[in-house]
């Protein structure tokens, strides 16, 4: 564990808590993409299959349980409890255009052609594009609530911090995982234009409103 990875995990934790607070306080899921949350649930489920078979640390297990639990709770809030406020018309990204290529790539490019390894690789590739339905929805509605912007900023920062973690681990431990790094770079790049909007607008107290 290193400071970059710890900050990254805390940023990820903060993003999930911000999202849950937004939904619980406003009792609304307006502006939130249910499809992205379903993709994140798929990512966590695929990545944490070893939750019961390989024990890394208490911290690791607790975080995995928390991430899986909250993402399914978020899906419950979107599609059941606050279903009336779910904006399915704007949440229209075709996720099959993500799942199929990512699934194929996981078969072709992985560290080891073994089931658990391919599923893990699939979760890494899927996570890098899982935010697209959410960003697509914001571009369609033309705006994002400030609290949703904070959620996205924290979520985008988490993988950016992981990139620093991988640089640190490369020099400190000689650890290097090309698949995770490449997917992490793609994932962070997808947030860049949002980061620009966030820093130039939200930090000055304005709302994010894209030219629709």
């Amino acid at each position: 564990m290193n400071i970059f990875r710890l900050c990254g995990d805390m940023s990820h934790l903060a993003a999930i808590i911000i999202l849950l607070l937004k939904m619980w306080k406003t009792r609304s899921v307006a502006g939130i993409s249910g499809k992205s949350q379903i993709l994140f649930a798929t990512v966590f489920t695929a990545r944490y299959l070893d939750l019961f078979t390989s024990f890394i640390s208490i911290y690791n297990t607790c975080m995995k349980v928390f991430f899986i639990g909250t993402v399914y709770f978020t899906i419950y809030l979107i599609y059941m409890k606050f279903k009336a406020t779910y904006d399915s018309n704007h949440d229209s990204f075709r996720v099959e255009f993500l799942i199929v290529p990512v699934g194929g790539l996981a078969f072709l490019v992985n560290h080891e052609f073994a089931p658990l390894e391919i599923i893990w690789t699939f979760s890494i590739y899927l996570e890098s594009v899982a935010i697209l339905p959410q960003l697509f929805m914001i571009s369609k509605t033309g705006e994002a609530e400030t609290i949703t912007s904070h959620y996205l900023f924290a979520l985008g920062s988490y993988r950016a911090l992981y990139l620093c973690n991988w640089i640190y681990r490369y020099y400190a431990e000689g650890f290097f995982d090309l698949i995770a790094v490449v997917a992490g770079v793609v994932q962070t790049i997808l947030y860049c234009d949002f980061f620009y909007l966030y820093i130039t607008k939200v930090m000055k107290g304005k709302k994010i409103s894209l030219p629709a």
Binding site: I56, M63, K64, F175, F176, D177
Partner: peptide
Amino acid sequence: VEKVKRHDEL
């Protein structure tokens, strides 16, 4: 890279 180490991240 040994296997466990590769998957020690969240």
